[in-house]
Design a protein around this nucleic acid. Structure first.
Length: 105
DNA sequence: CTAATGACATTTG
DNA sequence: ACAAATGCCATTA
């Protein structure tokens, strides 16, 4: 069962619009701390996949990261991002800074 | 309660 | 600039 922290992570992550991506550090900043580590762990639980677009959350350097790891589904995440309009090059986002969504709204 | 882990990030070699 | 080591925060054992 998700904890309070997890709930915040899912909430912020679900706020990411389509065609945009965010980083663990950005989300951590919105939460008020730098717990990008715990955020990744919480997203790994991902109780609501379609509600929480965890695939739209990438690393700070623009890399997609390791969502599925060595599983074959790893490709699915990239495919989904491409569908959203995000271009990926060798596992990294091309126009990363342009698709990077900031919660400054 | 203490120790170890992890979808990361930053600093040092 | 690239590779390796250390640090961070919350969760889980």
């Amino acid at each position: 069962m998700p904890t309070n922290f997890d709930n915040k992570v899912y909430e912020v992550t679900s706020k990411i619009p389509a065609g945009r991506v965010s980083t663990y550090a950005e989300i951590a900043g919105v939460l008020g701390n730098r717990a990008y580590r715990a955020i990744g762990t919480s997203l790994s639980r991902n109780p609501d996949a379609p509600e929480v677009p965890c695939h739209r959350v990438v690393k700070s350097n623009g890399e997609v990261g390791g969502f599925m790891g060595s599983k074959t589904n790893n490709r699915d995440k990239v495919e989904l991002l491409l569908s959203e309009g995000i271009h990926i090059k060798d596992g990294k986002i091309v126009n990363f800074e342009k698709v990077l969504y900031k919660f400054v709204d």
